[in-house]
């Protein structure tokens, strides 16, 4: 059990103990880690932090609504081959040079252990996760064009994020380790802010957090402000040289926290009713 480094978060990514444990079990068992949580709680950043924390290269695969599972493995460029056969540019008998590995293919053929981020898996078609089952299970795939089978020398650390737009199939879930990133509480949020804005004065930080959690409690917001937006907001406050006396009376740069027009009205009303 001493053959790998344990993940404990990184200098600029504060992870809760539960999250660290989930990451470590996924790494140790070679199972994909499925991460869900509100937008802006750092699901995607987690993969970056794992790569940095465990010192492995990161390969990202951003899933779109049109993404197919095979695209992640490899793409065979038949047109280029056809073209080359006409102009004798390259030896067209060697099919391998017309095969470009996708992100998953690269992770499975990499010489060292990699972190593979499959971002927003729920954006793709309903069947997409099912099409990945075998590859993620065996960490191997077959290329019919060349007759080769590639098998990962070391199972990549797969981090899969989902925004809950679609339910994922049970067979897929069964193979994953799951973690839900809960919204950080006050204490954890303080640590997160400290990491991103070490120069922020303590009293201003307290004030910012109070206003932020107050905003999150405003009922009926279409999108609640999240961690990443709080960090942006504080950056804006610092850049604008706002001090706590201002913050007591108004909320400058509200646009970094609130992204809907209707929300803006509600938020302003709530802010003024409190002042």
């Amino acid at each position: 059990m001493r053959d790998f480094n344990f993940f404990r978060g990184t200098e600029d990514y504060i992870a809760s103990p539960a999250l660290c444990d989930a990451v470590n079990v996924a790494v140790a068992l070679g199972r994909p880690l499925l991460v869900k949580g509100e937008p802006g709680t750092g699901k995607t950043l987690l993969a970056h932090a794992i790569a940095r924390g465990l010192d492995m290269p990161l390969i990202t695969w951003h899933v779109k609504s049109t993404t197919r599972a095979v695209d992640g493995l490899y793409v065979y460029d038949a047109v280029a081959r056809l073209h080359d056969s006409r102009f004798n540019d390259r030896d067209v008998r060697d099919i391998r040079q017309y095969i470009t590995m996708g992100p998953l293919g690269r992770a499975l053929t990499a010489p060292e252990r990699t972190v593979l981020l499959i971002d927003e898996i729920d954006k793709a078609d309903l069947e997409f996760p099912n099409d990945l089952l075998r590859e993620l299970d065996e960490m191997a795939f077959h290329v019919p064009e060349t007759g080769e089978t590639h098998r990962a020398r070391q199972r990549p650390v797969a981090v899969i994020t989902s925004n809950n737009e679609k339910e994922l199939p049970n067979a897929f879930l069964r193979r994953c380790v799951f973690h839900f990133i809960a919204f950080p509480d006050d204490a954890l949020m303080r640590r997160i802010i400290r990491v991103h804005h070490p120069e922020l004065p303590e009293r201003l930080a307290r004030q910012c957090l109070a206003r932020f959690y107050h905003l999150r409690k405003v009922s009926g917001l279409r999108k609640q402000p999240s961690t990443s937006e709080l960090i942006d907001w504080i950056a804006a406050l610092l850049a604008g040289g706002v001090d706590e006396s201002v913050l007591r009376n108004e909320l400058p740069f509200l646009g970094t926290l609130i992204k809907h027009e209707a929300d803006m009205e509600r938020a302003l009303r709530a802010v003024h009713s409190r002042l």
Partner: peptide
């Protein structure tokens, strides 16, 4: 992986057995 630690075991069991918040 649980290090004979109940908290660790709690996290571990939840990550492996529960797939929805």
């Amino acid at each position: 992986l649980a290090f004979s630690d109940l908290v660790r075991f709690y996290h571990l069991a939840r990550a492996v057995c529960v797939k929805s918040e």
